[in-house]
Design a protein around this nucleic acid. Structure first.
Length: 590
DNA sequence: GATGCTAGCGCC
DNA sequence: AAAGGGCGCTAGCATC
């Protein structure tokens, strides 16, 4: 990720910020740069944003790296002050990764405040309002932790991949903070109109929306259950059974198979009720203001390294309401997603040439069909999903068995990961994020003495499916982090340059969803943004996999509304299997 | 009234 | 007999 001119290690000290500047004569070493020496300065909190802005502006070509305990404790304030940084090292996120890594000598990370670093949690907008800004972290010694981490990584034997992982993770933290800062453009009036069309006008507090109120008597009549509340799964299940329907749960997919007058209105009701609950008026009031939705992204929130979000449901933003996401006047969205990210990552991490050859097609599954490996796209997909999730029976299981002969390296790779998990071993992503160790009931299930017990055997298999998927999902998340980190840097160079131009004035990332990004950009710069998105993907591939031949083709759309980014929909229409497999197109694959 | 759990469904 | 991974979020419901 380029040469680092200097690391500036930050620590809050009362109402001031103490900054230790460490030259890095030799990248990654802990030795102090004797030519330059450590410089320590103390800056009043009020002057800190300007200090950062100056350093960002004056370090010609080689911006500093800000080393801080936790991006969520530093960066939002800077962004509010109009200051953006090029790069950082997030010690909290790095600590989490290193603490789990089997390549790290954990003694190297041990310090007086180890437990505090272990327990350090990101702050949220909610916390920020509750707690004084330096209450939690003022005693955390970033300099000591930084030194420990550097030593640990240097001695790990995996320095290159781990440094890349920590850099990518840290860049992700910057992206997340920036997205939360600017927000996703979402027009309240469009959303309200959409809700009104689908479920009726905004109801009075406590009342059901009109469309639900309309469906309710139909459902009750069809089941001869005049007081039924369909929102109660228990009551609904009872009513369905009383009506003579043979059901064991009330899932929509199961109800769909049944032939009964209640099914149509009930499924319609469930669908609309879900929308009203998850993304209705209350959601709008809570999470959207002044035309912006703030997703509350938490980088590294998942064991596999995928992000999570808190509160607003950002990671399950329904396709149904993406029409509310509308670019500003004179602006556009550039929407890009990767087709079959995880299968492609698997081909590369296992070094499976046959699979990477099939991946030279924009549709990996068609590539397999075209090369005669499988008969239909549907078969290819069932087999790939089965391999990544651990199907053992049914069509998926059969395809896994067949395709294992065609792609022994890729299929063997996930198989090995599953076996390792079943033996209670830790598995790793491509860059070295380690899976958590089994605890609690899992420890018992994975012990040697557990062999004969059926329920423990089930648990053992389940843990194997987790580690099987971990290596693929986690490595896919790493590719995606490299992608958005590079894209973020490229976007900053597009369009007019100037210190007075803030993030929201330029092309900027507004959403990230595992394998998909949204960039909000002035219309005139959209073509440049499209090129940047593609360049960043190619660069991510090179950074991760070097010369191994693997393609990560993107579907890119320039549009006014997220709903108009229809490459995904078109591809699913073309497919012969959109309805047979789960609602999406597989894991983070499009 | 607060808390923790499950069922169900949304996303990848 | 069947056996697909990772999440968040809501309402309902049991419990304290």
């Amino acid at each position: 990720m380029g040469n680092v001119a200097a690391s500036l290690i930050l620590r809050r000290d009362g109402d001031a910020v103490r900054i230790v500047e460490r030259g890095t004569a030799e990248r990654g070493t802990v030795e102090r740069d004797t030519a330059d020496g450590d410089r320590e300065s103390v800056v009043e909190a009020a002057d800190f944003p300007r200090f950062v802005a100056d350093r960002e502006a004056t370090t010609g070509g080689s911006p500093p790296r800000w080393v801080w305990d936790d991006t969520t404790r530093w960066y939002p304030d800077l962004l509010r002050a109009g200051v953006r940084v090029h790069r950082c090292l997030d010690l909290r996120l790095a600590h989490d990764i290193l603490r789990r890594s089997p390549h790290i000598d954990q003694r190297t990370l041990a310090g007086d405040d180890l437990a505090r670093w272990d327990a350090l949690q990101p702050t949220t907008a909610h916390d920020a309002a509750l707690f004084d800004w330096h209450r939690h972290e003022e005693h955390l010694d970033a300099e000591a932790e930084y030194d420990r981490q550097q030593r640990a990584v240097d001695a790990s034997g995996k320095r290159g991949p781990l440094e890349l992982l920590l850099a990518a993770e840290s860049s992700g933290a910057l992206v997340a903070a920036e997205i939360d800062h600017v927000g996703l453009p979402l027009r309240e009036e469009v959303h309200e109109r959409l809700l009104t069309q689908l479920i009726g006008a905004r109801p009075l507090p406590g009342a059901r929306p009109a469309e639900l109120e309309r469906l309710l008597p139909e459902i009750r009549a069809a089941l001869d259950a005049p007081d039924l509340n369909p929102d109660s799964p228990k009551a609904l299940l009872g009513a369905l059974r009383s009506a003579g329907l043979d059901v064991s749960d009330t899932r929509a997919w199961n109800l769909q198979q049944l032939d009964h007058p209640v099914i149509a209105p009930l499924l319609a009701y469930k669908k609309l009720q879900r929308l009203a609950n998850a993304n209705g008026w209350r959601w709008l009031d809570t999470w959207v203001s002044d035309g912006r939705y703030q997703p509350g992204f938490l980088p590294g929130g998942t064991v596999t390294g995928r992000w999570t979000a808190q509160g607003g449901g950002a990671l399950s933003f329904p396709a149904q309401i993406r029409g509310s996401v509308v670019a500003d006047e004179g602006w556009r969205f550039v929407v890009a997603d990767v087709a079959q990210l995880e299968p492609r990552v698997l081909a590369a991490l296992s070094g499976d040439r046959a699979m990477s050859e099939a991946a030279s097609e924009s549709d990996l599954y068609e590539g397999m069909v075209k090369r005669g490996a499988v008969k239909t796209r549907r078969d290819a997909k069932l087999g790939m999903l089965g391999a990544m999730y651990g199907s053992t029976s049914g069509e998926g299981g059969r395809m896994v068995a067949r395709m294992t002969r065609l792609y022994p390296r890729a299929f063997g790779f996930v198989e090995d990961a599953a076996r390792a998990g079943e033996r209670a071993e830790v598995v790793e992503t491509y860059l070295g994020r380690a899976s958590e160790r089994p605890t609690g009931r899992w420890t018992r299930a994975l012990g040697d003495e557990a062999r004969a017990d059926e329920s423990r055997e089930r648990d053992r298999k389940k843990w194997g499916r987790f580690t099987r998927n971990f290596v693929v999902q986690g490595s896919g998340a790493e590719w995606a982090l490299c992608w958005i980190a590079t894209l973020r840097t490229l976007l900053w160079r597009i369009g007019p340059q100037g210190a007075d131009l803030e993030l929201a004035d330029r092309p900027h990332l507004v959403f990230f969803l595992h394998d998909e990004v949204l960039v909000h950009t002035p219309e005139a710069l959209a073509d440049e943004v499209v090129a940047a998105v593609r360049t960043a993907a190619a660069e991510a591939t090179r950074i991760m996999f070097g010369r191994f031949p693997i393609d990560f083709p993107l579907d890119v759309d320039v549009c006014r509304s997220w709903a108009d980014a229809d490459s995904r929909a078109v591809r699913m229409d073309d497919a012969d299997d959109a309805d047979e497999l789960d609602a999406g197109d597989g894991p983070a694959s499009g």
